[in-house]
Design a protein around this nucleic acid. Structure first.
Length: 466
RNA sequence: GGCGACGUGGCCAAGUGGUAAGGCAGGGGCCUGCAAAGCCCCCAUCACGGGUUCGAAUCCCGUCGUCGCCUCCA
């Protein structure tokens, strides 16, 4: 099999061939830390976590870097408003985002560089661009000279002429071209500032990612990822800076995730239509968000609303149901039942792989896992023993694990209520033996009201948190 | 205005040339004291109009609609 990935740069699926296998270098643009992160940010981190996990499952060694933008206009404005230090504000949200990543079961990156810790490198690269004629200084600002970069616009497929005509950018007459963008901005009074050959100032937005990529992964990398709202201008400018500086192709594959949609619109801070990760996790399990992401193409917009969350929660229950144990008194399933389980396991495993090979088609892969769940349930119903189910259930755990699902339902003893619930169910068992249905149902309904689902089977009664 | 993406059953969503995965919801049945869970069965011809082809949801043209980027944004 061969892995195909959709490359924004070429607008087509290409065979994935890293520069020096089995090593894969991947840089993903992280958040600007000035406020609570929302589920759209989580989506992006989840998408690239799934990609990373699949690459590792497939035998690649992934070096993964995600940055935090901790020097930025909005951080400064917010800090001034709250009357605290800008770095302190950024630190607060960096810590919070790190917690979110852990809560969401996202594998730790190899490095989390920040603008504030890369300042020397940034200055060095900006100076290098000036030296090579790709940038110029005006009144303490440094701008990238777009006209000097002959393939500028190749990622977003824009032509300079098209852009300047319809431009909404205020024309800064000091710039040679309206499309020239800032590499370094002179400090205004009261703003955080760093020393540079052009005076006190701070970096422009795009340069940090070029510098961090080169510093932490090298001048040429395999995968550069981020939301598709970053294609222009951010990634376009990264390419311009990096390739002008190094003279080499920058990232081989550009991967972009679609936007989270709330009420038909992109979820964003500026539109104010957002659900923070904190809010989400207070109401739902992390696996629900991950399953939502898995169940559609990472490149497409993702519908996010209460109805879909409800559906996804149910789907997660079903998926986990495949891991329920064999019946305690199971005596063994007939050969043909076991045979069809084995066949479905093979089909599901190969189907899963084929789907994921096709540009990480996790939704297709998930479909094959649900087929496996059904087969396991059928075998269990046919009295398969734990031993007879184990191979399939282990495969289900392995493959859902590749997608990063934890598959752990809320633990029974999490609240310490387990022994009390067990005792109630023991009493209920006696009530049922006496056929006192009204009373036994009262116990079940009462527990249900407290979030405990009671299920009777031939082999006894089990319960779980709703 | 420029560039790009998308429009599949009630909802979410795979599938990009050979006659529509999966999940949720719904209907019927089995099981069950009842329920829950599980199992079985049923439930779409793919926005619309042309065209190419033996054959199209899948390719081309047009129309309508939705969304994204062009300004900070995952």
């Amino acid at each position: 099999m061969s892995l195909k990935v959709y490359n924004t740069l070429t607008r087509q699926k290409e065979e994935f061939q890293p520069l020096s296998p089995p090593q894969v270098t991947m840089y993903v643009c992280g958040p600007t830390v000035y406020d609570n992160a929302h589920v759209g940010h989580a989506m992006s981190s989840l998408v690239f976590d799934i990609i990373r996990r699949y690459l590792q499952y497939r035998g690649f060694t992934v070096r993964h870097v995600m940055n935090y933008t901790d020097v930025d206009d909005k951080i400064i404005m917010r800090a001034q408003y709250e009357e605290i230090d800008a770095m302190e504000l950024a630190e607060r949200y960096i810590v919070q985002y790190g917690d979110h990543l852990a809560d969401l079961n996202i594998l730790p990156a190899s490095a989390y560089p920040r603008v504030s810790t890369e300042m020397d490198n940034i200055v060095r690269v900006v100076q290098g661009l000036i030296d090579k004629g790709f940038a110029y200084e005006v009144d303490g600002d440094v701008y990238f000279r777009v006209a000097k970069d002959d393939d500028y616009g190749k990622l977003s497929r824009r032509k300079l002429e098209d852009m300047s005509s319809g431009s909404r950018i205020d024309v800064d007459t000091r710039k040679e071209s309206p499309m020239d963008f800032a590499l370094w901005k002179a400090a205004k009074p009261g703003e955080p500032a760093w020393d540079s050959p052009w005076g006190q100032g701070r970096p422009g937005w795009h340069i940090e990612c070029s510098v961090m990529t080169i510093e932490h992964l090298g001048e040429q990398i395999d995968i550069h990822g981020g939301g598709n709202d970053l294609i222009f201008p951010h990634h376009e400018n990264e390419i311009a800076q990096s390739e002008s500086f190094t003279g080499k192709p920058f990232a081989k594959y550009w991967l972009h995730n679609g936007m989270m949609q709330l009420a038909g619109e992109k979820m964003s801070k500026s539109l104010g239509n957002l659900v923070t990760i904190k809010e989400f996790l207070s109401k739902h399990e992390a696996d629900v968000l991950r399953l939502l992401v898995i169940n559609s193409s990472y490149r497409s917009p993702l519908t996010f609303n209460d109805e879909v969350l409800e559906q996804t929660t149910r789907a997660l229950e079903r998926l986990r149901g495949g891991l329920k144990p064999a019946f305690p008194q199971a005596s063994g399933a007939p050969d043909e039942a076991l045979q069809s389980l084995v066949e479905q396991l093979e089909k599901s495993r190969s189907g899963f792989n084929e789907s994921m090979e096709d540009d990480f088609n996790s939704a297709g892969a998930l479909g094959h896992l649900f087929d496996l769940v059904r087969a396991i349930n059928q075998a269990r119903d046919a009295r398969a023993t734990a031993e007879q189910l184990s191979e399939s259930q282990e495969a289900l755990e392995e493959l859902t694990g590749v997608l990063g699902l934890r598959m752990q339902a809320r633990l029974a003893d999490e609240t310490g209520a387990g022994p009390f619930i067990d005792m109630l169910l023991e009493v209920r068992k006696e009530l049922r033996a006496e056929k006192l249905w009204a009373l036994s149902d009262k116990v079940r309904d009462g527990l249900k009201a407290l979030g405990v689902l009671v299920e009777d089977t031939k082999d006894g009664t089990s319960w779980r948190w709703e």
